[in-house]
């Protein structure tokens, strides 16, 4: 028992405590650093795959177990443009970090564009998918919007968020909200109008091309989404207009 008591006293000494906590910190830090580095490649693959899945989900319905990688390679053609709508060569669109481009002035941003091409004729563009990034109520919101072959009508949207309120603003992630954007229009006679999510829920905006029904209790998240759309449609406006005038 005597030795036990001796041990106990040693364990109370300041030197022991300092050494112990230093050792523990180094050990925990090493374990976490090792885990982070050795798993990073696998995690990046997952993140890239999710990105591809999200891009495809705006234009088509992905079935359970669909080969996202294959479908993406076949149907999506990505490139990067600048604010004036000119292609910036030699940059992989997936390498452009939209989150950090968002912090720059709109004129300086690198803007990725993903074209969804026809299954048999890859020169025929069926839709363009544009990434979006903004700020909701509590944290960042982002997503993709797909415009149909007229470069004006929304074919689908996909939103995600980092910290909106569960059950309220977080609903932007749900299919139920996202389908409301289908068929809405970005331009009205060459003027950028964007699409606005209204305050309040349950109203019918099917005859208005620029308004969608809101989310009850999440007006500020909707405001964030509206700002995000306006901001990014503004960035892509020159490119989209160029494309539209080429159509006519």
């Amino acid at each position: 028992m005597q030795t036990k008591k001796g041990d106990y006293n040693v364990r109370q000494s300041n030197l022991y405590i300092i050494l112990y906590s230093a050792g523990l910190t180094i050990f925990c830090g090493a374990v976490l650093a090792f885990a982070s580095i050795s798993l990073k490649d696998k995690q990046d693959v997952n993140i890239a795959l999710e990105q591809k899945g999200n891009i495809l989900a705006t234009v088509t319905t992905l079935e359970e177990g669909a080969n996202v990688e294959l479908l993406y390679a076949k149907r999506i053609r990505g490139f990067v443009i600048d604010y004036n709508g000119n292609e910036v060569p030699n940059i992989e669109p997936s390498k452009v970090a939209v989150a950090s481009e968002y912090k720059k002035k709109p004129e300086d941003r690198l803007l990725p564009v993903y074209e969804f091409v026809n299954e048999s004729d890859s020169s025929k563009v069926e839709a363009v998918v544009l990434p979006l990034f903004g700020y909701g109520l509590w944290n960042n919101v982002w997503g993709f919007v797909a415009l149909g072959s007229d470069f004006n009508t929304v074919r689908g949207v996909k939103f995600a968020h980092a910290g909106e309120t569960p059950g309220l603003g977080a609903r932007i992630e749900s299919e139920e909200i996202q389908v409301r954007y289908r068929g809405k229009k970005v331009f009205e006679n060459d003027n950028l109008v964007s699409i606005v999510m209204m305050k309040g829920e349950g109203k019918n905006y099917s005859d208005d091309y620029h308004k969608v029904d809101g989310m009850s209790g999440a007006t500020l998240t909707a405001k964030g989404i509206n700002n995000m759309m306006k901001d990014y449609f503004g960035c892509y406006a020159k490119y989209l207009k160029k494309k539209t005038s080429a159509l006519n």
Binding site: V31, L32, S36, L39, K42, Q43, N46, I47
Partner: peptide, 13 residues
Amino acid sequence: VILVDQLLKAYVY
């Protein structure tokens, strides 16, 4: 907790 999170992110995203 962080280890679990990292492993999930790598294997069951």
